[in-house]
Every structure is written in structure tokens, then in C-alpha cells.
Design a protein around this nucleic acid. Structure first.
Lengths: 149, 149
DNA sequence: TTTGATTGCGCAATCA
DNA sequence: CTGATTGCGCAATCAA
């Protein structure tokens, strides 16, 4: 819950905010400023290829540079937003699955109970048959009807 | 896979990398350099409180500054690592839940089938009883009926 | 007040 | 080359 940067708005630690609408000129974000061609010390010759544009510090004030930066900044923002979205979706997915799990477990519990009842009935019958009992009126089956949905 | 920054190692776009082991002195990472007291423009007087240490640009070369920065950088790295861990854990959680879901559904399918069988048996019995058939040892008689599916 | 934890942001390298 | 990703450092906040 806060946004700050060092580019467009210089945070006056207290409340002073200097706005650099398109901060091009100033020396913000300074970098060593490598020598134009080769650093004095280890001038490691780059692989024999084109060196027309790369290998050069690329002026920070260059108009093209700022354009590229801005585009990248947009891309970065977009990418991060997407990333966060995905993360949230994943969290929702977890909750969704958890709910479904509960539902399934409940159903299992129900089915198990039904099965239990029916099996008990069977056992009772088996008993009666084994004891050679004439099934007359003793047919008290605790019917627990049901039918899934 | 790649790390770059603008602090310790100045990326010589090609391969030239100037290493600033403890880059303290140079004018790296320049910031507008707010005036010591108030920026030229909107000199918004800070809330009448202590301004001994805050509200000042805090020397970028200050030893204490670098220490704070380094500590924060560590904290940031740690925090981000933790964040990524959590994200991965969440993903694993999803897979875990998915698996459990499948298991539960399989179980439901099984239970449902069992129930179906038992119910069919019951229906058969009920038929026999209704038809007033004397259940001998094996219950099949003048009844030419179905046998469930 | 201090300090670690978070978070938005920009930069640069690299991937695609 | 261009947009997408990703690691990193900075600064503002938040939270103890």
C-alpha cells in the first residue's frame, strides 16, 4: 500500500514531492559512465563482430533510450500484474478444490452410511434364514430410503 | 540464470564489467539531491516536529546509509524468497487437492455401485415376498424377471 | 525511535 | 527488434 520511486517523483522524505513529468534531462539514476570506447584497464576486445550499437553505454539522455525504458517499464508492470493475478487465481483454485473436497467427503459419508444400513439388513435376513425363521410379520426393516441426486 | 544490477557491477553491455566492490564513493545512483532544507519550488514546511535526522537527503556516501541499504537488500531478498516459496507451496497444494479429489470421486463411484447392487438385491427380495414365494435355499422360482444391470 | 518485512517501481540482462 | 520475464537495488511503509 504505497508507491514510490526515484524516477518520476522524488520522494521528499517528509512530504515534499518533486515531480519530474518526463524526467529526461536530469542526472537521475547515474551510472559510472563508462568511457566511450574502452575502459583504461582491461580492454577486453569483444568477439570480432559488429559493435556498432551495443558495447556502448548508450546515452542515458538519449531519446531512444528513454523510450525503450518506458516501454520496458510498461511491460514489467503488465507482467507483474499478470503474475499477481495468476497467484490469486491459484489461491482461489485451492479454496474451490477444498470446497469440492468437503462436498465429496460428505457424500462418501452418506453413501457409507446407507451401505452400512443395507448390509445390516442383509445380515439380519441371513440370520433369519439360518435360524429357519419364517418371515412373517417380523419384517421390520428399518428402511432408510434414499437416492442420490 | 542471470543477475545484474547497477550497484556493484556496472554492466558493460557487452562484456566489460567494472566491479565496484563496495561502491561507496562515486556518484552512482544519483538522486536529484534535494536541497539541504527545502527544494526551491514548493518549500512545504514539514510538520512541526523533530527534523534532526529525517527529512534530510541522508548522504548516499554515509557509512550508516550503506549499512541500512545492505540490510534492507538482505531483507528484500529474504522476503521475496519466502514469497516464491509460498507460491510454490500453493501450487503443490493445488495438485495435492486435485489428487485427493480424484481419489474421493473414485471412492464415491465404488460406493455407489455397491449400493446399487445391494438395492437391486433388495428389490428382488421384495418381489419374491410380494409374490408370496417361499424362499427356499436359492430364491428363484416361477418368476421370470430381470436381474438388474 | 529502531529494525526487519513488504511492496511498488525502475533498470538491465535475458528469454522468446 | 520487440515484448515478456526475472533478479536486483532503492525508498516508502508497515509492523513489532
Amino acid at each position: 500500500m504505497s508507491e514510490a520511486s526515484q524516477q518520476n517523483t522524488t520522494p521528499g522524505v517528509n512530504g515534499i514531492s518533486v515531480i519530474h513529468t518526463q524526467a529526461h534531462a536530469s542526472g537521475l539514476q547515474q551510472v559510472p559512465q563508462l568511457g566511450p570506447a574502452g575502459p583504461g584497464g582491461g580492454g577486453k576486445a569483444v568477439p570480432p563482430s559488429k559493435q556498432s550499437k551495443k558495447s556502448l553505454p548508450m546515452d542515458r539522455n538519449s531519446d531512444e533510450y528513454r523510450q525503450r525504458r518506458e516501454r520496458n517499464n510498461m511491460a514489467v508492470k503488465k507482467s507483474r500484474l499478470k503474475s499477481k493475478q495468476k497467484a490469486q487465481d491459484t489461491l482461489q483454485r485451492v479454496n474451490q478444490l477444498k470446497e469440492e473436497n468437503e462436498r465429496l467427503e460428505a457424500k462418501i459419508k452418506l453413501l457409507t452410511k446407507e451401505l452400512s444400513v443395507l448390509k445390516d439388513l442383509f445380515l439380519e435376513h441371513a440370520h433369519n434364514l439360518a435360524d429357519n425363521v419364517q418371515p412373517s410379520s417380523t419384517e421390520n426393516t428399518t428402511d432408510s430410503d434414499n437416492a442420490g441426486q
